[in-house]
């Protein structure tokens, strides 16, 4: 697992190959947990033809590296790998993956979810959906802020819900 921990790329990825590389040569690994995010055909009631992903080069890699460092402080994990695609993606395409290795499953599952919750609210990516009605920037969800709050981290990403007058 001497390779990079974080990659932002336009190309697709192969989870099996990444998981194999992550645990290669590490006999202490007894668990690999992974998550893949993919492009749905519908979102918030809109049909989706394709999706564009923008990011903040430099900050993105730095932010995710810091998240992995934090995951390593919190959980007994042995390795982690994050790949996130940018550019134009089509329905059902893979968007991103997180893979984590540990000695036993509990830490790998937890660290994988922690990294996802963190990334959703702190990594500078933005999705723009192309729908039959036109293009729209995806709104941040307050449920994602709630998810990272479970780990004791305040995100403040999604705008506060304004109550009806």
């Amino acid at each position: 697992m001497a390779g990079p921990r974080v990659t932002v790329q336009t190309a697709d990825f192969d989870l099996a190959a990444e998981a194999a590389a992550l645990r290669a040569g590490d006999g202490g690994v007894g668990a690999v947990a992974a998550f893949i995010g993919t492009v749905r055909d519908r979102n918030d009631g809109h049909g989706i033809d394709s999706m564009e992903l923008e990011h903040y080069p430099g900050m993105t890699e730095r932010a995710i590296e810091a998240m992995i460092d934090e995951a390593q402080r919190r959980f007994a994990i042995r390795g982690a790998r994050v790949i996130h695609r940018v550019g134009l993606l089509q329905r059902q395409d893979q968007i991103m993956m997180v893979a984590v290795t540990s000695a036993h499953r509990g830490e790998a599952f937890q660290a994988c979810e922690f990294l996802m919750d963190y990334l959703k609210t702190q990594a500078p990516f933005w999705k723009k959906e192309h729908t039959p009605e036109g293009a729209r920037w995806v709104d941040a969800r307050s449920s994602d802020d709630a998810a990272i709050a479970r780990w004791g981290i305040t995100a403040g990403n999604a705008p506060p819900v304004v109550p009806d007058p």
């Binding site: 992903l53 990334l119 959703k120 990594a123 990516f125 933005w126 999705k127 995806v138 990403n157």
Partner: peptide
Amino acid sequence: DQVLCEETATVADGSELAFFPPVTGG
């Protein structure tokens, strides 16, 4: 300088300051 900040943070000469909407990756 490529780290999320509050608006109370102080900028320095040569700082890189970015403004963007809430993030929606993953």
